[in-house]
Design a protein around this nucleic acid. Structure first.
Lengths: 217, 217
DNA sequence: CAATTCACATACGGCACGTATGCGAATAAT
DNA sequence: ATTATTCGCATACGTGCCGTATGTGAATTG
């Protein structure tokens, strides 16, 4: 509490800039503050869980106070939403990257699913996206980010339907169900005593299941 | 606060009972107290959510105080665990009942899955078992109740493998994955604007998926 | 240069929780 | 039967976290 911010009065304008008055620093400082809060919250939520993470603590860790948090995000839930949106986007990117570098579409789809399982094993993703997120914000379907990774999967499936690889199912419905399947597989693996072995079993079962989508197997 | 319990001094012994001294009432009263707490908590958790449910409030609603709660369940989480175990057992019973009255095993399995989806649409089950439970207690795999309903599904699958209806997958792995699939379907349906339509899509996609398990479709 | 906006900090009140303690009825001991 | 003891449960207290109201100084607008 005795600690104040060292130098908040250090607008990093390009040194030696002409009399061109300060126009950027303002917006930049704000963006930086928000980014700091999101980063701090993300770390706190991941390590302590949403409920146990003290706003006073992690805002202080970012050199700020709850005042900034309430100003920018409304409340603790709002911050969680921002964190979730950020992570969701990251996951989506990684999935696109993976499915795009496969030889054929089906293979890309499968790789994507397996990658999703692997990502879900990361404690941060599991804690925030799979456990606290749904409990605090409600079902992911409702999130503004609309679960970007589900859209990714939906798109992959639609392509598979179009090129006749899989049967003409409803792409979104299948995406959500497949997503749920991978999710539970991840939770199971993560809490297993022997993750390697369980992982093998889970992937095997998963592959058998999705083979049901194929026109011919 | 001004309200005390009316008559706690009314042991309901069978009136006119012989001098046979009181032996039961003790244990019975305790069981009743626990049951009351579980029921009150179950209702509060279902309607307000775990985090928003005030222990002071719902224990008072049961004519008790937090003292009884801490004495019997240790803490709020302990109570949630008890509630979860109770609901889990109920679900398991209902699933057994359903799968047992089908003509053939495969049909029973499918009915069971669909029934599970329907149950997951009940707000109480969704809120407590699918959202708050995992967030507060961790992955269901770890619960002492060991998710009785997963064992039920595992058993059904094993029978299907034994009689050659489905391919020789790992029964438990498949049960968990199928369970996750139905779960996400339920969450999706529940939060949809048109549950009927979405439900049809979800079930259709689900059936296509599980057809992958069949030896021949 | 005056007026205003606004990003953020500080201050306050309250609720919910965990623990420590007390009481009284049922059981066990003699 | 009377005393001793357990134990189910209530009461009391301290603390941490949260939401709101309010303040302040720097940046922006005219």
């Amino acid at each position: 509490m005795a600690e104040k911010m060292a130098d908040k009065i250090a607008p990093e304008m390009t040194p030696g800039a002409p009399p061109r008055s300060t126009a950027r620093p303002r917006k930049e400082m704000i963006a930086e503050t928000k980014a700091k809060l999101i980063a701090a919250a993300r770390h706190a939520f991941a390590t302590h869980g949403y409920a146990e993470a003290s706003m006073d603590d992690f805002t202080a860790g970012a050199g700020l106070t709850r005042g900034a948090l309430y100003h920018h995000f409304g409340d603790k839930k709002g911050l969680l939403m921002a964190v979730v949106t950020q992570i969701d986007a990251e996951i989506s990117d990684r999935l696109c990257e993976i499915s795009s570098r496969a030889d054929n579409t089906w293979r890309g789809f499968v790789d994507e699913c397996v990658a999703y399982i692997e990502m879900s094993l990361e404690p941060e993703i599991q804690r925030i996206m799979l456990l606290d997120g749904p409990a605090v914000l409600g079902d992911p379907s409702q999130w503004p980010s609309q679960s970007a990774c589900i859209r990714t999967t939906t798109a992959s499936l639609q392509k598979l339907i179009d090129d006749g690889t899989i049967r003409p199912v409803d792409a979104e419905a299948t995406a959500r169900i497949v997503n749920g399947a991978t999710l539970s597989a991840a939770l199971w693996i993560a809490s297993a005593e022997d993750p390697k072995a369980v992982s093998k079993k889970a992937v095997g079962a998963f592959l058998t299941l999705v083979s049901g989508l194929l026109v011919e197997r």
